[in-house]
Nucleic acid binder design. Structure first.
Lengths: 151, 151
DNA sequence: GGGATAAAGTGGGTAAAAGTGGTTTTTATA
DNA sequence: TATAAAAACCACTTTTACCCACTTTATCCC
């Protein structure tokens, strides 16, 4: 569905223009309603079409409330999820709390990841990429499930 | 139903403005009647729409009185539950006892967790989040039920 | 390749909504 | 009945959503 990395600017009001190539499908599948939340492992945001998110949220919410790990997960994912909408010029407003968390300044990277996007500050994206490339160059660490995949 | 993290201020009288985006649904489902109580595990408050709470309260109350764990649960949850109402400008008054328990000063975080909210002091929320992220980032500790969830 | 045209991206103004602080009135309590 | 607390009320400030206009980039056709 979504793929590719897009260099994007965020304006002083915290608005980010969704690249036009994604807009049509976004308005089609979710009327421009998106959900932004934070990632578990990295300081970046995840952006889902509303319906996609609701499926995930339901699964997470169904996990037991008395288990401390699942509760943490609920707090992280559901507890940071904010619904946002494309405005008339195809922008979304990233809520200040999330902007702050992911340390988003002027320059961002929006990464298409099939059914969702990842949103990074450009600098941490570049830093991350360099280190992943360095790590995966060494093929000893590739887990089982991946050994069969042929690129 | 409810999701997201909201930075909120509490005023000197202990009043907290419920973010407007939740108000309509709150007045609809419970006429603005909420129940505030304390959490079992963390120094935060739980806020339920009245009807949601009543379901939970009934369940807890039905637990055996001779079991010491369930009695603790009853004392903690039911024993601290206070009914509050949205005032004409959409604020609720957090009872002093609860405010004190959760160490709520000026800056709070209101966290949507589906059918309820959690209310934290901003500082302890941030501290908590950092530590949960550190723990869950390490994928060895993720329990079975969660391994199958694809974000 | 270059100019015309359209599309995308950007910035900012404004009206409405939300949030805030404080005063007054009501209610509950001792 | 006096007192304190909470609710209602009101005025003011800040923020947000919406709209419009301008600039830049891309596309098309010659």
């Amino acid at each position: 569905m979504f793929r590719g990395n897009n260099e994007i600017n965020i304006d002083i009001k915290g608005r980010m223009a969704m690249p036009s190539r994604y807009r049509d499908i976004l308005t089609e599948i979710c009327g421009g309603s998106l959900v932004v939340t934070i990632d578990i492992q990295d300081k970046c945001l995840l952006i889902y079409p509303l319906h996609e998110w609701e499926v995930i949220e339901t699964q997470i919410a169904a996990l037991p409330s008395f288990n401390s790990t699942t509760r943490k997960l609920q707090r992280i994912l559901i507890g940071h999820a904010r619904e946002v909408n494309l405005d008339t010029s195809g922008r979304i407003l990233i809520p200040p709390e999330l902007r702050q968390y992911a340390e988003l300044e002027k320059k961002l990277m929006l990464i298409g990841q099939r059914h969702r996007f990842e949103l990074w500050s450009e600098s941490s994206w570049n830093r991350g990429r360099d280190s992943w490339l360095a790590e995966t160059g060494d093929d000893l660490k590739i887990p089982e499930e991946m050994q069969s995949i042929s690129l």
